[in-house]
Design a protein around this nucleic acid. Structure first.
Length: 599
RNA sequence: GGGGGUGUAGCUCAAUUGGUUAGAGCGCUGCCCUGUCACGGCAGAGGUUACGGGUUCGAGCCCCGCCACUCCCGCCA
């Protein structure tokens, strides 16, 4: 080893020892007659002192010429700092190393952005940070994120090992199964014209592992989806993926609650209460207007369908007449909303297909609204009662088909909460974690444009047993044995009990999803066959590992918890990928490019 | 594919709403400084205002286009 100690190790009891530190020049203070250099490594930093009276001039001059972030090796004697010069801000602040030798391992150029000043560094343009990710990752905040990620990964592995799970790797080179997310294709050299695909998830392999008798599988699995990126979505990401045999939904709830309890304890030393609350998909939509509600605050939706069934306000009564609903929320204290905010909400509502956004402002004891003149006293009384309307409130309405109306107000609810938080009228504590299970999702959703049913989750999800007969007669009513785990309005993960009978799976593929039998055979034939040779009932779940870490780190973007993330356009600014390849490489893959090459 | 935001010195930001030679702090270079830790002092260098057009007597600012980053919608079985 080149060093004897790391930079957060020396304390006053090391006084007198001769030590060697290795690290980066964090900062240097050249006072002319004496130079202080803080040497930093990933553990912390220690002050070294270069005193010309006890050093060759040549060594002193080299120390004076060091630039920030150069890598050095300093040998010297540990000593207590003189009275009154301790630095309480750093853990090694009671001592310093009186340098005797200096080896410059790598003289750094002037940096493109500062890494020593956390105030400035955290504000640096992300483009620049990604271009020089190796510098960005030196920042303490990023080091903390990487460490926490590693710790949680280890805690996860230990937990699953304790629970009797096997960690099993599944192939990265898989087969295209174009249901669902767009896939990355990998052309085969050995098989001209054929392609592998990178897995969107190890779903099919893990189910096959259950048929194989593994019983309990888990993996920190890399997944790939060629879809547009977001703050919480990358082209490649990591899932805590697991599958178990001979279980029911309750077993998964229990297992995952145990995992998250362990993770929160390990990462944040927080005891989260279990079991988690459960809410049905229908109730989540009815109360919060979204299937992943943030339950840290109220602002719940209320239903007024019956009250407005024969209302004098045509927009409402016709919505009900068409089988829709009338719903409203009370944004407490938001009567002062600006015209701009009302417009922003209206735009949001319109993006869901609403024609407008009706509202009532309660100001100076008066209901100010373009529509309140259509309301009867009974209607007003119902509103006032169900929404506990008070001075200063803002009531917002949606009248539409059930799902649409709920979703509109769900968005509005989040928008209002954000505004109220910035105005200090609503507290949403960042250190509070509201976990819940969302259950009883509809197994199927209807695609109006393509005029067919599609799986809400994925086609392997088992229907609730008593709903199986409805599969072909009334698909809308079939509930899936699907569950999502949600925290603070973030979908942490989802899974289901799977279909383990080949004939049910076949009905779902061919009769419900209307996939032609030959396509089913080509894509999923091996699964249906496997299910015929002794398939245990099984189920599982996958948790977004990057999202999980981001929540624990308190950052809104998973880029902050991934060492080398891609930009919103899917490029890597450090390596400049994706990039043009050599014609020979394409020839080997039997590929001819049509698109114009960009240099 | 669509909508919003941002782009000015190496970095973070100004520029009195279209008006002289585009400024500040940090960083950088040089000099001074023996107890600093955001060291201090003096001096200095550093700009195609992302890029390309246009309007104007005059554009960092207005208009059109384009690029990059970012947030959102679509998309994410």
């Amino acid at each position: 080893m080149k060093r004897t100690h790391h930079c957060n190790e020396l304390r006053s009891h090391d006084d007198g020892q001769t030590v060697t530190l290795a690290g980066w020049v964090h900062s240097s203070r050249d006072l002319g007659g004496v130079i202080f250099i803080d040497v930093r490594d990933r553990e912390g930093r220690t002050q070294t002192v270069f005193d010309p009276s006890s050093l060759p001039k040549e060594t002193f001059d080299r120390a004076a010429a060091l630039r920030g972030e150069s890598v050095i090796l300093v040998t010297g004697k540990v000593r207590r700092r003189p009275e009154g010069t301790n630095n309480p801000k750093i853990a090694s602040g009671e001592v310093e190393v009186a340098a005797q030798e200096l080896e410059i391992l790598n003289q750094a150029d002037v940096l493109p952005f500062p890494v020593d000043d956390p105030e400035v560094a955290s504000k640096v343009n992300e483009e620049l940070r990604l271009q020089h990710r190796y510098l960005d990752l030196r920042r303490p905040e990023m080091v903390r994120n990487l460490r926490l990620r590693s710790k949680v990964a280890t805690a996860t592995r230990v937990y699953f090992d304790e629970q009797g799970f096997l960690e099993i790797e599944t192939p990265i080179l898989f087969k295209s199964t174009p249901e669902g997310a767009r896939e990355f294709l990998v052309p085969s050299r050995l098989h001209p014209g054929k392609c592998y695909a990178l897995p969107q998830s190890p779903q099919q392999f893990k189910q096959i592992l259950m048929v194989a008798g593994v019983e309990r599988y888990f993996q920190l699995a890399k997944c790939f989806r060629d879809e547009d990126l977001r703050a919480d979505r990358q082209l490649e990401f990591t899932q805590i993926d697991l599958e178990m045999s001979f279980i029911e939904r309750e077993d998964i709830y229990n297992l995952v609650e145990g995992l998250l309890k362990r993770v929160w304890k390990t990462a944040l030393d927080i005891d989260i209460p279990t079991p988690f609350e459960r809410i049905t998909f229908e109730e989540a939509l009815n109360r919060y207007g979204i299937d992943k509600p943030d339950t840290r605050f109220g602002l719940e939706l209320a239903d007024f369908t019956e009250e407005f069934r024969s209302s004098g306000f045509k927009v409402f009564n016709s919505a009900v007449a068409n089988g829709g609903v009338v719903k409203a929320i009370n944004a407490k204290g938001m009567a002062c909303a600006t015209q701009g905010q009302i417009e922003a909400m209206t735009e949001c509502a319109k993006s869901f297909g609403a024609k407008g956004l009706a509202y009532i402002k309660v100001e100076n004891g008066e209901w100010k609204s373009p529509i309140v003149k259509f309301f009867t006293d009974a209607e007003k009384a119902a509103l006032a009662r169900k929404l506990s309307i008070e001075e200063g409130d803002l009531v917002l309405f949606a009248a539409d088909q059930w799902l649409t109306a709920c979703e509109i107000l769900g968005k509005i609810r989040l928008y209002c909460a954000e505004v109220l938080v910035t105005q200090g009228k609503l507290a949403v504590p960042g250190d509070r974690f509201d976990f819940l299970w969302v259950v009883d999702f509809p197994l199927l959703s209807f695609d109006k444009e393509q005029n067919r049913w599609y799986s809400s989750h994925h086609p392997f999800t088992a229907p609730v047993a008593e709903d199986v007969p409805l599969l072909t007669s009334d698909p809308r009513k079939v509930r899936g044995q699907h569950y999502d785990v949600v925290v603070n309005g973030v979908e942490l993960g989802g899974g289901s009990i799977r279909i383990h009978q080949p004939e049910v799976q076949k009905v779902v593929f061919e009769q419900v999803l209307q996939i032609p039998p030959e396509t089913v055979k080509a894509r999923f034939g091996y699964m249906l066959e496997a299910f015929r040779y002794g398939c245990p009932p099984h189920g599982g779940i996958a948790l977004g590992f990057d999202r999980l870490i981001a929540i624990l780190c308190g950052t809104p973007s998973i880029r902050d918890v991934i060492a080398f993330p891609k930009t919103a356009k899917g490029t890597d600014l450090m390596t400049d990928s994706p990039a043009v390849v050599e014609p020979k490489q394409l020839r080997d893959l039997h590929i001819e490019l049509k698109a114009a090459k960009k240099p």
